[in-house]
């Protein structure tokens, strides 16, 4: 079976086709790892490219992500631990008071597609829960997002708390969201700012080198 068909189904946001094609590929003894790398991840990379070129917008990316996860959930139990070894662990969340998680979810799918393990704390996450998760999970990266001017300052509290508890040593913190920029990132003492999902992935790659 031509794995490009699955890639195309992701780009076409056709979740039904992704399901059928992934199941067919498995029946044809194509390995889960190969399906992941050469069709699902390849499809999302193309979706990311179309998004950065403003051919696709958020609705298309959401639907393509949905199609990606349909395929990913079928093959993920079949990927052996050593095959699926992640490059690094990322804890991510939308800050307290903010329920706008579309951007975070798009970043999540891109980060997972790039081979990272993601612990998603969800949206409207309190400072203490974020700090507790960092202490427990010991991630390489903490990614926080905010879409509102009323909530973004909570990121400062998270960073202060992590500093106070000595949890910054092996941790990189990245931030994103519509009202943020590099200046805000510098002001609050985060390690990086990404303006979209593609940039977030590049940023993580650079920070954990």
């Amino acid at each position: 079976m031509d794995l490009d068909k699955i890639k195309k189904a992701i780009i076409d946001m056709d979740d039904g086709a992704v399901k059928t094609l992934v199941e067919t590929a498995l029946k044809e003894k194509i390995s889960a790892q190969e399906i992941l790398q050469n069709s699902l991840i390849a499809g999302m990379k193309e979706v990311g490219r179309l998004f950065s070129e403003q051919v696709y917008f958020v609705p298309e990316v959401l639907l393509a992500s949905e199609a990606f996860y349909i395929g990913f959930n079928i093959i993920s139990p079949l990927i052996k631990p050593q095959q699926g070894k992640s490059k690094a662990k990322v804890v991510m969340c939308v800050i307290e008071g903010d329920i706008h998680d579309i951007g975070k979810n798009i970043v999540k799918v891109m980060i997972e597609a790039a081979g990272y393990e993601v612990i998603d704390l969800g949206r409207n996450v309190a400072v203490k829960r974020i700090v507790d998760a960092v202490e427990k999970e010991k991630p390489d990266v903490l990614a926080m997002s905010s879409l509102m001017t009323t909530t973004m300052m909570s990121m400062t509290e998270v960073i202060k708390e992590l500093d106070k508890m000595g949890l910054r040593k092996n941790l990189k913190i990245i931030v994103g969201g519509a009202p943020l920029n590099q200046e805000f990132c510098d002001q609050i003492g985060a390690d990086g700012y990404g303006c979209d999902a593609q940039e977030a992935v590049q940023l993580i790659e650079e920070l954990i080198k």
Binding site: M13, P59, E60, L62, L63, H100, I102, N105
Partner: peptide, 11 residues
């Protein structure tokens, strides 16, 4: 719901 709404703009 924002997610659902953005998806039905296409579907």
């Amino acid at each position: 719901g924002i997610d659902k709404f953005l998806k039905i703009l296409v579907k």
